[in-house]
Nucleic acid binder design. Structure first.
Length: 781
DNA sequence: CAGTGAGCGAGCTTCCGCTTGACTT
């Protein structure tokens, strides 16, 4: 029987540590937090110094029970939760629940799961740091207050039937996306004409190659044309050549946020997909912990990595580097994300392999030499106007870390200089160049791009908002609430002008480009815009991008024992509560209403606004004798940008298409999307059909097919009791009303002969003993 | 599943940050 019980947060960690510590220790995991504030009345006693009321949530009761049982049999208990605010609090909660004295219970910490690190930690235990615990309690309580006070305000003031929510993190995330969208909508592109010229010269192998040189930019076409004119008949001579060495350095090893960004850019993975794959790689022992904000490699890790670089590429590729975190909010409880064994070059299964190899390469590169470049800048003189053109070339002299890894950049970070990575033929000062042509091409400035999941994470991290464990869930939340959508946008065609100088004459032509196309980007919904505007108006301080950073400073004060946590909360709560009360009292219900104009036929006003079921347009008002007409907005339309013409088009539904089997066929958009209605039955329209243009001829086969499919699915119907036996992807099952009931294997095999009594019994049995649902998708009955 | 969009009021929803499996029509 083990004498010592050591508790960590992650079960995968527990397994590894148990092996390291041997038989004297039994290592158990508490699976993260074991207690939380109860939900009734926020779980906070506001009138008693904000005393928290903690409970062990339903899904954690088994964990706590098991820990208690093992604790009882152990002589000594060691708390080895993560070394950060949350980890410290978990240790304290463990003391509370297991009846341990926080003043004497041994608390140890380590940042890497290696034998020396853990043995060292065990040699120097401390006790729970109550100041740090109090900082966590302040964090938890403040988040609960903000979330549970603000959300109900939205329920009262936003005219939507929805589970609206607000919070310190999610509301600011939506604000970023909302503001970016409006920036884009308000953006007016400015066009410039950039001069580019092409020359021919001989390369080292005496072959003719073409290269490009660039000149001034002009904002007006006439000025660009005048410049081209001034070049007619010119002689082009190399006036000056500068050769400069340059270098590039590798990026730091992966944190959660940078892994999400690179996996998104290089592999096209969503943030949650990256985390799912990384979790599995961690559980199978292939990589270190995947939720981390640390770029700090341990000595052992650095040795492993440099060893591998030496054996694979040679000693001249090694450059030992220590990385520092730029981010002040980082808590560095873990190591960076890296392979647990650098000798493992790959893993099976394509999806895992791509992520693993990305991590392996980034880790290797982080300890590799700089890449050495030679940049050549040639100035080319134009004889007729004495202006210069500039040609730039770049030659890689030593690959260094680029041998394994090249970091991708977001579109907004790419500068024009960086994109010029071409080679120049050898040139000498005084050389006369063979001129081909010169162009002045119109280019338009672009607005900031919309956020991807990963670039949003990057922005949040920069602002110190959210933690590695919450980036993916935050994105899921704002998508689930309907504040934000992830989708593509088709570009629009735009023409641009090109002026060309060739053979001493100037010609003008027009090109066409696609602009504004987006793929898998985050767009705010009308609901997201309305909620953001509302929160900005009444709770400006919470919505401020610096709010989290400011309160983090106060949490630090608490952590250092310089401030009492209840005082900090009190200072926040009093004015905040006043704002909440004032808002409930004075704020109007908002619907984001916008007037679009009047209907040319009836003269009635047309408006766009949020309705109970989402964004819509309305013709006429409630006070009119005749009822107003309503229509839902199409998926890509927005209250802020829809035009009167587009609105009028929406009122074309419902449309009567004609008759089939002597009954009307009509098409409209309902709660669950576009549908066909025929003979009292409804048929959902698939995406590829447009309810505004679908014809009777196209509709009939859809109705016929759907009927047949339904028949195929149906095994048996008990008409009176409204019980059906249906065929599903998991085999036959019973359905009554909206609910499904699973059949036993044996019953599935003879589903066709199932009697009414048996079906009823199945329903009764499953109603009495519902199958255990996972806590995440748990629904209240 | 279904064609809604007033206002009332029942009874409900909601936060952030730690951690994993059980479930699916």
């Amino acid at each position: 029987m083990a004498k010592n019980l050591l508790i960590v947060e992650s079960p995968a960690k527990a397994k590894t540590i148990e092996k390291i510590l041997g038989e004297d220790f039994e290592v158990k995991s508490c699976y993260g937090h074991i207690r939380d504030l109860e939900k009734e009345e926020m779980g906070i006693d506001v009138n008693n110094n904000y005393k928290p009321r903690y409970i062990v949530p339903e899904e954690k009761q088994k964990v706590v029970k098991d820990l208690k049982a093992v604790a009882k049999k152990s002589d000594e208990i060691w708390l080895a939760t993560d070394e950060d605010r949350e980890g410290e609090a978990i240790s304290w909660h463990l003391c509370e629940v297991l009846g341990l004295d926080p003043k004497t219970t041994k608390r140890i910490v380590f940042h890497e799961i290696t034998k020396p690190a853990i043995l060292l930690a065990v040699k120097s235990p401390r006790t729970v740091d109550m100041n740090l615990v109090n900082a966590q309690q302040a964090r938890r309580i403040l988040d609960r207050i903000v979330g549970f006070e603000l959300s109900p305000v939205l329920w009262r003031k936003i005219s939507v039937r929805n589970n609206l929510s607000a919070g310190r993190v999610q509301s600011v995330a939506v604000r970023l996306i909302a503001e970016r969208e409006r920036e884009i909508n308000a953006f007016t592109p400015i066009s410039t004409f950039r001069i580019e010229a092409w020359f021919e010269a001989k390369d080292t192998a005496k072959r003719s190659v073409t290269f490009k040189a660039e000149g001034n930019k002009f904002s007006q076409a006439v000025d660009a044309e005048a410049f081209l004119k001034s070049c007619i008949g010119a002689i082009y001579k190399v006036r000056d050549i500068q050769v400069k060495p340059a270098k590039k350095s590798p990026a730091a090893p992966f944190t959660t946020s940078t892994l999400q960004q690179e996996a998104s850019r290089k592999l096209g993975y969503s943030v949650s997909r990256t985390m799912l794959l990384a979790q599995k790689l961690y559980e199978t022992g292939n990589i270190t912990y995947m939720r981390t904000d640390s770029v700090n490699l341990s000595e052992t890790a650095m040795q492993d990595i440099t060893q591998k670089i030496k054996s694979q590429f040679g000693a001249n590729f090694v450059q030992v580097r220590k990385y520092k975190n730029k981010n002040e909010s980082a808590q560095e409880a873990h190591e960076p994300i890296m392979p647990t064994d650098m000798e493992r070059l790959t893993v099976p299964d394509a999806d895992f392999r791509r992520l693993y190899e990305l991590i392996w390469k980034r880790t290797m590169a982080s300890q590799m030499a700089d890449a050495e470049l030679e940049k050549t800048i040639a100035k080319i003189n134009i004889s007729t106007n004495n202006e210069d053109l500039t040609a730039q070339g770049e030659v890689l002299k030593f690959e260094g870390f680029l041998k394994v890894y090249r970091e991708d950049h977001d579109e907004e970070d790419v500068t024009e200089e960086e994109s010029a990575e071409s080679m120049l033929p050898p040139l000498r000062v005084g050389q006369l160049l063979d001129f081909r042509e010169m162009k002045a091409t119109e280019r338009f400035s672009r607005p900031a791009p919309r956020f991807t999941e990963a670039s949003l994470v990057k922005k949040l991290e920069e602002l110190g908002i959210g933690r590695p464990s919450t980036y993916a869930p935050t994105i899921s939340t704002i998508l689930k609430r309907g504040y934000v959508e992830k989708r593509d946008k088709e570009g629009v065609k735009r023409s641009f002008r090109i002026l060309k100088l060739k053979n001493d004459s100037i010609t003008s032509e027009t090109g066409e480009e696609n602009t504004g196309a987006e793929k898998s980007k985050l767009f705010p919904t009308d609901l997201g815009l309305v909620v953001t505007d509302f929160l900005k108006q009444y709770f400006d301080d919470i919505m401020d991008y610096g709010f989290t950073a400011r309160i983090e400073e106060e949490f630090d004060e608490v952590a250092q024992g310089r401030m009492k946590w209840n005082k900090m909360i009190d200072d926040f709560y009093n004015p905040f509560k006043k704002d909440v009360e004032k808002t409930i009292e004075t704020a109007q219900r908002v619907s984001g209403e916008r007037e679009l104009g009047t209907d040319a036929v009836s003269g009635k006003p047309v408006i766009a606004r949020m309705g109970r079921y989402g964004p819509m347009v309305q013709m006429g008002s409630q006070d009119d004798e005749e009822k107003p007409k309503f229509a839902k907005l199409k998926p890509n339309q927005s209250i802020e940008t829809i035009s009167l013409d587009e609105a009028m088009d929406l009122f074309r539904l419902p449309r009567n298409l004609g008759q089939f089997e002597d009954k009307d066929v009509s098409v409209s958009i309902g709660r669950f999307g576009p549908y066909l209605a025929h003979d009292g039955k409804f048929y959902s329209l698939a995406k590829e059909y447009d309810p505004y243009s679908i014809s009777l001829e196209e509709s009939i086969p859809l109705i016929v097919e759907k009927r047949a499919a339904k028949e195929q699915r149906t095994i048996k119907v008990f008409e009176k009791e409204k019980i059906q036996v249906l065929r599903g992807p998991y085999g036959p099952y019973v359905k009554q009303g909206l609910r499904n009931y699973k059949l036993s294997k044996e019953q599935q095999e003879r589903a066709g002969e199932l009697t009414l009594e048996e079906a009823k019994a199945v329903i009764e049995e499953l109603k009495a003993n519902p199958p255990k649902k996972s806590f995440r998708r748990k629904k209240k009955e």
